[in-house]
Amino acid sequence: LKTAGVNTTDKEMEVLHLRNVSFEDAGEYTCLAGNSIGLSHHSAWLTVLEALEERPAVMTSPLYLEIIIYCTGAFLISCMVGSVIVYKMKSGTKKSDFHSQMAVHKLAKSIPLRRQVTVSADSSASMNSGVLLVRPSRLSSSGTPMLAGVSEYELPEDPRWELPRDRLVLGKPLGEGCFGQVVLAEAIGLDKDKPNRVTKVAVKMLKSDATEKDLSDLISEMEMMKMIGKHKNIINLLGACTQDGPLYVIVEYASKGNLREYLQARRPPGLEYCYNPSHNPEEQLSSKDLVSCAYQVARGMEYLASKKCIHRDLAARNVLVTEDNVMKIADFGLARDIHHIDYYKKTTNGRLPVKWMAPEALFDRIYTHQSDVWSFGVLLWEIFTLGGSPYPGVPVEELFKLLKEGHRMDKPSNCTNELYMMMRDCWHAVPSQRPTFKQLVEDLDRIVALTSNQEYLDLSMPLDQYSPSFPDTRSSTCSSGEDSVFSHEPLPEEPCLPRHPAQLANGGLKRR
Rank of each mutant, 00 (worst) to 15 (best):
F400I: 04
G245C: 03
P353A: 01
I235L: 11
A305T: 14
K307N: 11
N280D: 08
H407Q: 03
S389Y: 08
Y303F: 04
F470Y: 12
C309G: 04
T477K: 14
V394G: 02
D313N: 01
K213T: 12
K355Q: 02
K411T: 12
S216P: 12
G388V: 07
R434T: 00
R351G: 03
L168Q: 13
E397V: 13
N453T: 08
T199A: 10
L334V: 02
G245R: 05
K200I: 12
E405A: 09
V378G: 01
L206W: 07
I341F: 12
L379I: 08
R424Q: 08
E323V: 13
N233K: 09
H369Q: 08
E212V: 05
N349K: 15
Y262N: 07
G189V: 15
I329L: 12
S479F: 15
A335P: 00
K308N: 07
D337V: 15
K345N: 02
M327V: 04
D217E: 04
I383M: 14
N196I: 14
G350S: 05
F400S: 09
D472N: 08
S476C: 13
N258H: 01
E212G: 12
T436A: 08
D364G: 13
E223A: 13
P392H: 00
S208A: 07
N325D: 10
G388R: 04
Y420S: 06
R336P: 02
N280K: 05
A449G: 04
I383S: 05
S469R: 11
H340N: 12
A202G: 08
V183G: 15
D209A: 08
C178R: 03
C293G: 04
P468A: 12
C415R: 00
N258D: 12
D209Y: 06
L334R: 01
Y466F: 11
E405V: 04
E455Q: 10
P395R: 10
L402R: 05
Y466S: 13
E418V: 06
K288R: 11
R266Q: 04
S375F: 03
K307R: 03
L440Q: 01
C241S: 09
P269S: 07
I235N: 15
T348S: 10
K288Q: 07
C293W: 02
P246L: 11
E212Q: 03
T416P: 13
V297G: 03
D191A: 08
E455A: 10
R365G: 15
Y253N: 08
H279D: 03
I329V: 11
E283K: 11
A187T: 14
G393S: 05
W356C: 02
P435T: 03
Q181R: 04
V485L: 14
Q264H: 15
Q264E: 01
H369L: 15
P412L: 01
D217N: 06
W374L: 01
D445A: 13
A315P: 01
I219T: 11
Y420D: 09
I250M: 07
T348I: 02
P462S: 07
G175A: 01
N453D: 05
S475I: 10
C478G: 15
T385I: 04
M222K: 14
I383N: 04
I219F: 15
D324V: 14
G481V: 14
T322I: 14
N318I: 00
E442K: 13
D472G: 13
S480T: 14
H231L: 06
N276Y: 07
M224T: 11
D193H: 10
R424L: 09
D342V: 08
D289E: 12
T242P: 14
N258S: 07
I234F: 13
K401Q: 14
K213Q: 09
R317S: 00
L450W: 05
A335T: 02
D458H: 13
A361V: 04
S278G: 04
S287C: 08
K207N: 07
S467Y: 07
S371R: 11
W427L: 00
L184F: 12
Y456C: 09
V203M: 05
